[in-house]
Design a protein around this nucleic acid. Structure first.
Lengths: 246, 246
DNA sequence: TCTAAACCCTACCGTAACGTGAGGTGCAAG
DNA sequence: CTTGCACCTCACGTTACGGTAGGGTTTAGA
């Protein structure tokens, strides 16, 4: 290992950076060698090497070259602020990526359980997911996914079967004009309430979002999911659930 | 809302995409309008609109335009494979981002607790963190961070104080040639063991990594952290801990 | 001292998915 | 007939370099 000044290749070998990167840093004014030979070859002196090490450190933290330059040239906010801003950006990105992962997993699940899907059907399913997703905050979606994981595949299926059993019964009761406070309807209301609580984890905000979703997008969901409560059914069963409390 | 065919602006308004994006899709051959007016204005027909909706769906999943094109043109792997690959990429990225977040948080912590740092010192600290980090797998670092969070700030400080008390004592005992099986050293070994277990969460792999770290980078760490066990001290106290077991 | 290998230079294209003009044309309403 | 809006085609900018081309420089060995 020679003494400085070093030529660009030597510096590259000794620091693990690429020659091209060093050229780039020179181009953008982040690290210009303090010397050149008569022929124009770059010569990096000891201060340049120190600066390069600092650049390297900041790069390891994911700081952009632009910010790095501002920091090293003393024309930036405090390091602390740079770090905080960077953390904020990272958190934002990670939130978006988590959202994507959630969607993709749900889609993969769908591909696993349902029959083979054509591309158009797949795309329709995606649109459907988005329609549903927009009613919930990312945090709520997170909570719901955690619940799905902790509850397990099997329980999920039985819950779905329960819904498929209860919903037609409620519809029938309503259409027959049965009194919401009658014992049969109250029994349905009790089961309904349990299922809702199981799904929402007892979070009323989630329950509310679900209701809004069915109210606003009922027809579309009906078409997609097949068996779905209507606004009127919500009102009906809510009356019954109210009656349960007293 | 007119009937198709639509011009770009109308299509853009009705789909929420930007005109420029539609131009771009045309440029790269992802969505070329099936008609043009004599003057060259793009006219999108009904099949184009369907294709655009599919593009939109896939974009919502974060699929690249390139993959989208391959998928829609039927020249790609199965949707399932595309999803899986995409998930894998996302996980990789998120792992890297988590790593960055960990580093930045540690750095912010350092800035909070220690005295105000110059930029050079900050960079040295970063290099130091990297030196330490390389001894652990990302999973181990994760575990350690979780422990730090669950243990809490206060306990961390008392643990550090404990180390600062014990290490000199062990050094002194060793330099005085005290028998590792003597009662005083055994008492030290007991405390040492507890502290190690607290820090590692009982994971011997982590304990091992720590030992390797001090063995390999002892001098550098000594300089940075000030008060650090040597290889010999490890050997000495290990003998004593062995003696504890019997 | 000569030559060939190794090294260096500048300059340009490419990356992903558009945003943002610039400069020119098409078209319907007043 | 003109105004104004929508449309067109370039073409550059964004990040942090990688890769390559074409040509000069340095250096080690013969």
């Amino acid at each position: 290992m020679k003494e400085p000044p070093w030529k660009v290749g030597e510096l590259a070998r000794n620091t693990g950076m690429s020659v091209r990167a060093l050229h780039h840093y020179d181009e953008i004014g982040l690290l210009r060698p303090s010397l050149r030979t008569a022929a124009g070859h770059r010569l990096y002196g000891r201060p340049d090497i120190e600066r390069l090490q600092q650049i390297h450190s900041l790069r390891l933290m994911g700081i952009s070259l632009e910010e790095t330059k501002r920091l090293l040239d003393g024309a930036a906010a405090s390091p602390r602020q740079v770090i905080d801003m960077h953390l904020a950006r990272l958190h934002e990105q990670m939130a978006m990526q988590k959202q994507l992962v959630r969607r993709l997993k749900a889609l993969a699940d769908h591909l696993d359980t349902a029959k083979p899907l054509s591309l158009e059907e797949l795309c329709k399913t995606i649109e459907e997911m988005m329609r549903v997703e927009k009613y919930f905050t990312p945090e709520q979606l997170d909570v719901m996914e955690q619940r799905r994981i902790s509850v397990g595949e099997e329980r999920m299926r039985t819950v779905r079967d329960d819904w498929n059993e209860i919903i037609p019964k409620v519809r029938a009761a309503m259409e027959n004009g049965a009194d919401p406070t009658s014992p049969e309807v109250l029994a349905l209301a009790r089961r309904w309430k349990v299922l809702v609580e199981e799904f929402t984890g007892g979070d009323p905000a989630i329950a509310n979002a679900v209701k809004t979703m069915y109210n606003d997008d009922g027809p579309a969901l009906q078409e997609k999911l097949g068996n779905v409560p209507t606004k009127e059914m919500f009102a009906y069963i809510c009356k019954s659930i109210e009656a349960l409390k007293s």
